[in-house]
Design a protein around this nucleic acid. Structure first.
Length: 403
DNA sequence: CGAGATTCATGTGAAGTATACCTTTAGGCTTAA
DNA sequence: AAGCCTAAAGGTATACTTCACATGAATCTCGTA
């Protein structure tokens, strides 16, 4: 065993590619945020009143993934925290980040409150308590100290289905009930239409201020990548035009800087694994596939059993039907048979319908309702995954369901 | 022939249920004065 | 009498079910040209 570990460590030590790989990992926090000066200034000027211990306006931020929203907020937060620490002021500032998309973690009223309480150092059971009581616990914890809490709710658009408008509104207006402490919400959404889904009074208190983060363009991406690559890789590792290609590709797609950086890292890993001393354009292409694959495979692995069963039924059906379109009813039948085979409880068609919608939300399926006249009305369903991922997914699902 | 009614298979919203978990409370048992 | 433990009662969130009504175009019906 030790021998094996020795090998691994030895290989790692001798790695030819990376100098400091951490720089390319998603939890890396650069000291400078490139090309977001304007946005950072806006965020800063909106959050600045906390320095005087004043209440801060609620803020709504709109921008696609990987446009530096989180990074910018984190940057401003750190600066604020630093200053508060230096100057004191007799109160505490907390900035807590919550991603509302995380299934079974922070995707309902109750769970968001529970998460917040946890971050404040408390503990609440996963179920059993009335939400209002959890809200009270939260307020008590908040009031224990003189502090300002800024809650960053990332991807609220994903949770708005499950989170009641009322909850958001109450959270936004919590200030009126707080004596010692103050609270502000920063909502982040990828979907600008999100605001329209809210009722007007919630909307107006959430978007007291609004900031838009545009996607990075190719030049900016190139710049960002170069800065990171410089620290992450050893000298002369990057092949001709690799960064330019990477930037151009991502810019064309959606300007998601995180993806661009991932791409570069994975390309590096691939080169490392091959034992080659240079990253070339080919690695980028391979990395692209690998990232795509991993993302979906992880998603599928994390799904609950029933969801996996539904997905398996769909994949199986697609195989059988080849290019014919498939509909809800077909899927349900297939799913039922599968359940008998695997000894899984059979859920109702109603529920399966909801599960299908959830898959659609997650971008795994392409669904649209068609009316076939006298033949009824149903959803036509297509898998929106590349072929090779479907094959891999099928294996994984088989494994998970049958054994 | 064409306007309007019918129909089908499911979409979809609302209300109800099962489960797993929580707190409160009352009763019973133990312990110590 | 005070303290502690236990079990029942009463309550909640969440995932799922049940019920009931909504959809929307192909097809049918039937009056009319």
């Amino acid at each position: 065993m030790t021998l094996k570990l020795d090998n691994i460590f030895e290989n790692f030590k001798n790695n030819l590619i990376f100098d400091d790989k951490h720089v390319l990992q998603s939890n890396y926090n650069p000291s400078v945020v490139e090309h977001r000066d304007e946005q950072i200034e806006q965020v800063a000027s909106i959050l600045a009143p906390v320095l005087r211990g004043d209440h801060v306006s609620n803020l709504f931020i709109y921008g696609k993934t990987g446009t530096g929203k989180t990074l910018s907020i984190q940057f401003v937060s750190n600066e604020l925290l630093k200053r508060i620490k230096e100057e004191g002021g007799g109160f505490k500032l907390r900035i807590e980040y919550i991603n509302c998309k995380l299934k079974n973690v922070s995707d309902t009223d109750y769970r968001i409150l529970a998460e917040l309480i946890k971050k404040l150092g408390g503990e609440v059971p996963a179920t059993g308590l009335p939400t209002s009581q959890v809200a009270n616990i939260f307020m008590d914890m908040l009031e224990k100290e003189k502090q300002i809490l800024i809650i960053v709710l990332d991807e609220i658009d994903h949770a708005v289905e499950k989170i009641s408008d009322d909850f958001l509104y109450k959270l936004l207006r919590l200030n009126t009930e707080l004596v010692n402490s103050k609270i502000s919400i920063i909502g982040i959404s990828n979907d600008l239409g999100f605001l329209d889904k809210l009722n007007p009074r919630t909307r107006s208190s959430l978007s007291q201020e609004e900031i838009v983060f545009p996607p990075y363009n190719a030049t900016q991406l190139k710049d960002i990548l170069e800065k990171r690559a410089e620290r992450a890789f050893k000298r002369n590792i990057l092949g001709e035009g690799v960064i330019a290609k990477c930037a151009a590709y991502i810019a064309r797609e959606n300007g998601d800087a995180r993806r661009a950086i991932d791409l570069l890292r994975v390309a590096g890993e691939l080169a490392e694994r091959e034992g080659i001393k240079q990253i070339i354009v080919r690695h980028l292409d391979e990395a692209k596939d690998k990232i795509e694959r991993d993302k979906h495979i992880d998603f599928i692995k994390l799904q609950p059993k029933q969801f996996q069963a539904v997905l398996y039924a769909i994949i199986d059906l697609c195989d059988k039907k080849k290019n014919e379109p498939i509909f809800t009813g077909d899927i349900y039948n297939e799913y039922q048979e599968l359940c008998y085979k695997v000894k899984l409880d059979v859920l109702t068609q109603r529920r399966i319908g909801d599960i299908l919608s959830e898959f659609e939300m997650a971008g795994i399926l392409n669904v649209h309702v068609v009316s076939k006249g006298r033949m009824g009305r149903m959803r036509e369903i297509k898998l929106s995954l590349p072929k090779e991922i479907i094959i891999k997914a099928k294996e994984i699902l088989k494994e998970s369901l049958f054994y």
